[in-house]
Lab assay of single mutants.
Amino acid sequence: KTYTFRVRIVDEETGEEKEIEVTAKSEEEAKKAAEELKKKYPNLKVELE
């Protein structure tokens, strides 16, 4: 079973919002993916929905 999570990304500089879908095998995995995004884009606000 896989879970699909919507991750909302807000670029703090431009105020631009993007939504991406993360497919993960567990909620834990999705959280890790969101953390990776935060590391990659430090000025983005990442929200897991």
Rank of each mutant, 00 (worst) to 15 (best):
L48V: 11
R6S: 05
I9K: 00
E21S: 08
V46R: 03
V10I: 13
I9N: 00
K39R: 11
K1V: 09
S26I: 00
L44V: 07
E17R: 07
F5G: 01
V10K: 09
S26D: 08
A30F: 10
R6D: 01
N43F: 09
Y3A: 04
D11W: 04
Y3W: 09
L37Y: 08
V22E: 00
K25N: 14
D11F: 04
E17P: 03
T2A: 06
E16W: 14
K39C: 06
A33D: 02
I9V: 08
Y3C: 14
G15S: 02
Y3R: 09
Y41F: 10
E19S: 13
D11G: 01
P42V: 04
D11Q: 02
E36P: 01
E12I: 13
R8K: 11
A30E: 00
K18D: 05
E17K: 06
Y3G: 05
V7A: 02
E36F: 10
E19N: 08
K31L: 14
K38F: 13
A34F: 15
I20P: 00
Y41E: 02
K45M: 07
Y41G: 02
E29W: 05
F5T: 02
E16R: 05
E27Y: 15
T23W: 12
E36K: 08
K39P: 02
K32V: 10
T14Q: 01
E27D: 03
N43R: 07
N43V: 04
K38H: 05
T14S: 06
E28I: 09
I20W: 11
K1S: 06
V10T: 13
E28K: 09
E27H: 12
E36S: 07
V10N: 02
R6V: 14
E19A: 06
K25T: 13
A33F: 15
E29G: 05
V10Y: 13
E19Y: 15
E35S: 07
E49N: 09
D11K: 01
A33H: 10
K39Q: 09
E13A: 12
S26F: 02
E35N: 10
K18A: 09
A33G: 04
Y41H: 05
V22P: 00
R6F: 10
K31M: 13
E29V: 03
A34C: 15
E17G: 04
T14M: 02
K25S: 14
A33S: 05
E29Q: 07
I20V: 08
L37F: 08
E29Y: 03
E17F: 13
I9G: 01
L44H: 13
E12K: 08
E36C: 13
E27Q: 10
V46L: 09
K45I: 12
K1Y: 05
E12P: 15
A30C: 09
K25F: 14
V10P: 02
E12S: 09
K32T: 08
K45N: 06
A34T: 10
E13M: 10
N43K: 09
E13R: 11
K31H: 13
E19K: 06
T4I: 14
E36N: 08
R8V: 11
T23H: 13
A24P: 00
E12G: 06
A34H: 07
K32L: 13
T4P: 13
Y3S: 05
E21K: 07
R8P: 01
Y3N: 06
E35R: 07
E17T: 13
L37V: 04
I20Q: 01
E16P: 00
V7W: 03
E28M: 08
K1G: 08
K32F: 10
G15R: 02
D11M: 03
N43M: 06
F5W: 13
T4M: 09
A34P: 00
E17M: 12
K45A: 05
T23N: 06
L48A: 05
R8Q: 03
K40F: 07
T14H: 02
E49T: 12
E47C: 10
K39T: 07
A30S: 02
P42N: 04
N43Y: 09
V46K: 04
V7K: 00
G15H: 03
E27R: 14
K1N: 09
K45Y: 08
E16D: 06
E27C: 15
D11T: 02
L48P: 05
I9F: 11
E19G: 03
E29T: 03
E49Q: 13
V46D: 03
F5E: 03
N43A: 06
L48Q: 05
E17I: 14
A24I: 03
A30Y: 07
V22H: 01
N43G: 12
I9M: 08
K1I: 11
S26H: 03
I9P: 00
D11P: 00
K1H: 09
E35K: 05
E29K: 02
N43W: 09
P42E: 03
K32S: 08
K18C: 15
A34V: 15
E17S: 13
K45R: 13
V7P: 00
T2E: 14
E35P: 00
S26R: 01
E47G: 05
A30G: 04
E12C: 15
L48D: 03
L37I: 13
E19V: 15
T23A: 07
A34K: 05
T4D: 04
A30N: 00
E35Y: 08
L44Q: 06
Y41A: 02
E28G: 09
A24T: 05
K38D: 02
K25P: 08
A30I: 07
